[in-house]
Structure formats: C-alpha cells, structure tokens
Write a protein that binds this DNA or RNA. Sequence first.
DNA 1: CGTTAGGTTGACTTGATTCAACAACAGTGG
DNA 2: CCACTGTTGTTGAATCAAGTCAACCTAACG
Lengths: 253, 253
Amino acid sequence: MTSIGQIFERTVRKFETREQLDSADRQAIYDLPYELHTVEANRYIVREGDRPTRSTLIVDGLAFRQKVTVDGARQILSVHIPGDFVDLEGSLLRYADHNVQALTRCQVALVPRDAIVELIRSRGKVAHAMWIDTLIDGSIYREWIVNVGRRDARAAMCHLLCEFARRLEASGMGSSGGYELPMSQEQLGDALGITPVHVNRILRELDREGLIEREKRFVRVPNWEKLRKVGGFNENYLHLDQVIPRPLSAARA
Amino acid sequence: MTSIGQIFERTVRKFETREQLDSADRQAIYDLPYELHTVEANRYIVREGDRPTRSTLIVDGLAFRQKVTVDGARQILSVHIPGDFVDLEGSLLRYADHNVQALTRCQVALVPRDAIVELIRSRGKVAHAMWIDTLIDGSIYREWIVNVGRRDARAAMCHLLCEFARRLEASGMGSSGGYELPMSQEQLGDALGITPVHVNRILRELDREGLIEREKRFVRVPNWEKLRKVGGFNENYLHLDQVIPRPLSAARA
DNA sequence: CGTTAGGTTGACTTGATTCAACAACAGTGG
DNA sequence: CCACTGTTGTTGAATCAAGTCAACCTAACG
C-alpha cells in the first residue's frame, strides 16, 4: 500500500504542519536509516521495561499503547496511525513505561536510536516538530483521562468514535460519514475502562437510537452533530490546526 | 520561602537530572525575564482557550490541571510542584486545551513566551531537557488513565497517595513516612473520577485498615509496602532516575 | 457568633459487572 | 467440502461498586 519511497512521507507532511521545515530538514528525515518490518495484529512492538535501540515508525496499519495492572486488567491509552513514531520515548527516556501493540497488521520502519538522537541534535526544527507532537499526544491523553474518568459509558463511547472519526479524516483514512474501526469490542472496552459486555450493550443502544450504523467494524455516522453532542466532543484538544507561531514575532492565525 | 535569587533553582536542578547542561545553558535559564506573582488557592492560572503570551513557572505552592465536561463534571489531570512550567503548551501550541488552577496559594514566575521560544531555539540542551519533561508528563498521564480507567476506588486512591508520596519525596517536600496533601476530598474525587462522598468512605476505610493515618490533610503512611501493593504502584512511570543517555555512545545506567 | 466550606454518615438507586449460555463466523485440517 | 475449534459478538438474570440525596457535624473566619 505504501511504497518504499514514501516511508517518511506522512511523517514529513505531519511535521510540516507543525514547523516550517527547510529542505535540509526534510532531507535529514528522508535520509534516516531504517529497516522495514511487518508486524502481525496483536503482536507487541514495544514492551514495558524495554530499553529499545531502535524507534518504531508506523508506515501502514494501526497500533495502540496499553498498560496492564497487577491484577491483569488492560487499559488502552491511545491509538496511533501511519506517520506516528510510537516509541520516541524509547530514544529519549531510559526505558519504556508501557506496551505498544499492533492493532492491525502493521508495516513499520525501525530507525536506530542513535540516528534519531543525531537528527534531534542537528535539526532543531525537526526536533521542535517532534516535541510538538509529544505535546499533542499529551493533550490527547488528558482528554482520554476525562473520557474514562468523567463520562458515562454511552458518552465516552460517542466521544471515542468522534475522536477516531476526526483523526482518521484528518489523515485521509476515512470521512466524517464513516470509517473502518478495526477494534474488537473487548479492545473498545479496554480503551474506555469498561467490560466488553457493556460495550456491546452500548453499541447496540447507539445503533438503535440511530446515532451510528454498524456493518462489521465499519462505523457510519448518519448524524455527526448528534454524536458530537452526546459525546461532549470538542476537537480543540486534537490541535489539528496546529502551526507553530513564528518565533519572536506576533504571528496571527 | 523561596527567595528571588532562587527562582529558577529548582528548574535548573531538575533539568540537570535530565540533560548535561553547561554553564551557558544554566545562565540562559537564570537570565530569563520574569515577573513574580502570587496566585491565591483555587484561582485560575490558565484557562482553556487562552492564548497566553507568558508561560507560568511554579516557584512555590502546588497547582493542578483540570478539564470540565459539557455537563459540568470536573476531572483533575495532574498536580504540579515547584520547578514545573505549567503551561509550556501555551508557548508551543496555539491555545490551551485545559485549565490550570492553583491548588494552594502559589508564587509563580511569568516568563514571556518569546523568551521561552528564544531559549528553546538557542539552547538545544535546555530544549531537550524540557522535552523530556513533557515526555515524563505524558507518562504520568498514561498512568493516570490506568488509574481512573482500571482500578477500583480503593486501589486508585492508594495509587494516587503513592504517587504523591514519591514525587514529593523526590523533590524534598515530604518523606515516605508522610506528607501534607493539601487537597479537599472533593478535589481527590475529581482526580479519581469519583464522588466526594465515596472519597470519604474510601479514606475512612483505608484509615480503619491501618493503611494510612490522617491528621487534617497530613497523611502518614505507616506501612509503605502495604499501600504500594494495594495501589498496584510501580514508580517506573515517574522516571525519577531519568538521565539522558549519552548521544551516539552506549552509555550505561 | 453567624456563615461557610469541608467532612461524615445512612438509606436508597443505578450504571456497570459478573456469570453463563449461545450464535455467528473465520480458519484449519482431515 | 465439511467437521472442529477458537474468537468475537449477543443476550438475560443476578449482583455489586459507586452515585445520589439528604441530613448533620465541625472548624475556620470575618
């Protein structure tokens, strides 16, 4: 689906919405050494405690972060799409504090840690773009806390569906009308902090109410505004329009 | 408590555990322009939607991040201690996606956004240290998601108490034996995603079981190991020992 | 010394879990 | 090509953790 020549294409495109890169910056990214691998669905990409020597870039497919409590309950923390580095932390922190798993079969590019560290050191603007990425990830985590902490299952599910819709749409992988959501009901439960049985009931309820229409794992959203409202979804936290303000000048949006 | 000359002391000390700074780096931080202010408990430091022109550094006191859902429920997202910049996002993202409030009366230093941006641009290592800070914040958010999503109220409360204990201890503001936790039971509830009534019952239960001893808002931990176990607390995610690995060489811990 | 915020407690309700059974479906191997 | 097996989805009944409502208590404070 994604040819070799375009491995870093999505990443560069994303970074360019975050910081004005020059051609040397772009080239430095394109020049990153990497090794392509295929990871089957559900296989681990990073394990808690790992001290990885390579960072993983998702080229194709979806992946998710998760953590397991001492008594075995799993909590999904975020979902990632092509163009995302899923363990930059591995290059910058000592060890991984959580797991990363492939949601679907993934094509990933493994980039040596040293190359990432050198890129960061030598290309300030690229580093800046990556940093902004981690800030936005942080913002998404915060909203996720609100979702599991303060919304009931129905609202939380709608919110989650809205988030996926907007993020997939923004990256050209679906429309506001509908999209493929390749998660099992158990995984949805792990994302929302509820049981799969309850996920099932909520989904059917939303279906019955006409808030969504399902066909296998394809979700159609007949009335975006209604779904948005039930989920209390406000997309600001995704910072989809994020562009770095020009330094030292009062840039206007 | 903190004299003018030491405004950036804690911040520098923190950054030095994250990256090898040279004297020019340190000086650049000390030279940051700022304005000192006092913020009363519960007053807002940043409001969602703000486009702040200054970043706020906590010099003394505690602050917390929070978000309010459409139907008025508040979720506390994190608690911050002296030395933390509580709205770096304000300098790097377009607008604030959440609120920051003073937990206790705070002394804060307001640093102009442009000065922060310039510091980041000119002092790569300082920027790096700050970035690592945002990565660690991200890690704490992830654990917080697990806490509200997958732990019952009792375990979540113990986990929260453990987190505070370790963080306060690490910054010299309390010992593992006990510490001042200046949060109302309502605020604790907002942090855990439960009602203040339930917080009360859980705290009394923990008290009765001998897991904690309370005196006003001072919490004593007679048996750390027991509390740790009930909370399923593993401090790795705090990255308290974080030191940046030497670039391009196989540094050993 | 009244006012207010925070803490405590009981009775009742509810959203979500648990347990258990079964249906639909995909993949596998005989 | 079909039986076997495992995963995912569906449903009902019973139970439980947490929420709601409401009252009252206490300490701090102007």
